[in-house]
């Protein structure tokens, strides 16, 4: 299994090379004629219209091979959320439905806490929006690798864009050996793990000892390694350091969850400007 997830994340690659169908830049005409928008799910299950160099089982194996650290990391989080939901008077069906319809970890924790405190629907929805606005950034970055893909696929794919699936899929797309179907498997496997672990937490959470097997470190470990994959030179290192410092500063100074968006936008802009400045200087 280790071999399947051992790869170099830093090979130079142009965008869209993961999906041969997209290597030619589609014009507006061909965009409309692509049959993508119809029957995404059935085509996915039948394996039609994909990169034919991969068998269906290889696609699933690789997709699930990329997804398992996410699933592992979701287990303690989901169980913890299930326990809290139960304490807030939400039954296993209720929390399972929330995981299915919302699928956003931190927003769900906040929602459960607000429900327990008797907050209004409007306040909970507003908090959810604020917490999840950061996905605008991730969705934008993923769009670079999903050029010319039909709206049906995008509608399904967008549902599964989380911090974790974004980080895993971006690293794989960047390495060149990745396509949107395997990326979709990552999204949906993570979703399944999330729904199941929250429901499991609601049913039997109190039986599982907190912090078993160091599992609370799974997502931090995954983010650390993905960060290493993303460090592809001085500008990326600079951006990471600025983002980390700003994020901690915002986290300490401003209540709420704006620190991720604020720090990421500011740091990426700083890195971008530095890159521009240096490139201009070279000319």
């Amino acid at each position: 299994m280790a071999d399947a997830i051992n790869y170099k994340g830093n090979s130079p690659c142009r965008p869209y090379c993961g999906d041969p169908a997209l290597t030619a830049t589609p014009s507006w005409g061909t965009l409309r004629k692509r049959p993508d928008s119809r029957g995404v799910v059935s085509r996915f299950l039948k394996g039609q219209g994909m990169d034919n160099s991969l068998t269906t089982s290889a696609r699933w194996r690789q997709g699930l091979g990329a997804a398992w650290p996410i699933c592992l990391g979701y287990l303690p989080l989901g169980i913890a959320l299930g326990v809290l939901a139960r304490q807030a008077g939400i039954d296993p069906l209720g929390i399972g439905l929330m995981s299915l319809l919302v699928f956003a970890g931190s927003a769900q924790f906040i929602a459960v806490a607000m429900l327990a405190a008797g907050a209004s629907v409007g306040a909970i929805v507003l908090a959810t929006l604020v917490v999840n606005i950061r996905h605008l950034l991730m969705s934008s970055a993923l769009a670079v690798y999903l050029r010319g893909v039909g709206p049906g696929f995008l509608a399904l794919f967008a549902y599964g864009i989380t911090d974790e699936s974004f980080a895993v899929n971006m690293t794989r797309f960047r390495s060149g050996d990745w396509d949107r179907w395997r990326a979709l498997i990552v999204n949906q496997a993570a979703n399944a793990a999330w729904v199941l672990s929250t429901v499991a937490g609601a049913f039997l959470g109190e039986l599982i000892p907190a912090g078993a097997f160091g599992i609370d470190y799974a997502l931090i470990g995954m983010f650390l390694c993905l960060l290493v994959f993303q460090l592809r030179g001085a500008f990326h290192l600079f951006t990471a350091l600025v983002a980390g410092a700003l994020s901690v500063a915002c986290y300490l100074a401003v209540p709420g969850d704006s620190y991720v968006v604020v720090a990421a936008v500011a740091a990426a802009s700083a890195g971008f400007l530095l890159q521009r400045h240096k490139r201009r200087g070279r000319r």
Binding site: A141, V144, A167, R174, L227, A263
Partner: peptide, 17 residues
């Protein structure tokens, strides 16, 4: 170019705190 720096920025911003 800007979006290329977003993943590393998001990861560092999530991790640091």
């Amino acid at each position: 170019d800007w979006l290329d720096l977003i993943p590393v920025a998001v990861l560092a911003a999530l991790l640091a705190p």
